[in-house]
Amino acid sequence: MSARQSRIAIFGATSDIAVAYARRSAAQGARLVLFARDAVALETVAADLKVRGATAVEIRHADFADLSTLPQVSRDAFAAFGGLDVALVAYGSLPDQTALNADPAALKAALDLNFVSPVLLANLLAAPFETARAGAIAVITSVAGDRGRQSNYAYGAAKGGCQTFLEGLRHRLFPAGVTVLDIRPGFVATKMTAHLPQGGPLWATPDQVAGDIVAALEKGRAVLYTPWFWWPIMTIVKSVPRALFHRTKL
């Protein structure tokens, strides 16, 4: 599928990976409808994408934590250009596990934003794609969803839940020819991880991840580990026996 003039909706469009993907699409002349909470940031991103070659950019304010608004968000996405070729769900938060352990309300909010909201939205987007019998739903999950770890299991559980949900959704949409892409990035140097060292061979840039997303969508892939080396790493992490795993600080 060529990105030229393609119709793309991005939810959480001001996140760094989303911006990098949008820029690559804009350079190919895509039409983009962008959803995010921060209206000023949305306008800034939209102006940038226009200069970079986007044929059209529409912006919509959205608060993904407000689950009741998601049906309207989905309708708006399809209405912007009379249909969609790609929907990228890119929002989320990286909560501090230690803080969540003492705060059930914060834990619920983190699970809502990282699991309930994205899967509700993906399910809402599914029906029109199914009717059109074409297109792709891509959701950014995480390698953290592959195994529960003491340092990060609320985020991991939410992302893991998304992965299982997407697996089922992919199964459902297979007959309609709709791609469901589960994007599992490792460490990416973004705003969300600015408090971490962000150096070394395991870290990728948002643009590298975006390049992998473009390629995976073109090939109609199901699961994308990005960069690629996270697939062998997570295969090992998943296969470490529990007795040994419990002795690590992962």
């Binding site: 800034t44 991103v45 102006a47 940038d48 200069v51």
Partner: peptide, 8 residues
């Protein structure tokens, strides 16, 4: 992080 085009 301030890497946006504004107008051309």
């Amino acid at each position: 992080g301030l890497d946006r085009f504004i107008a051309f």
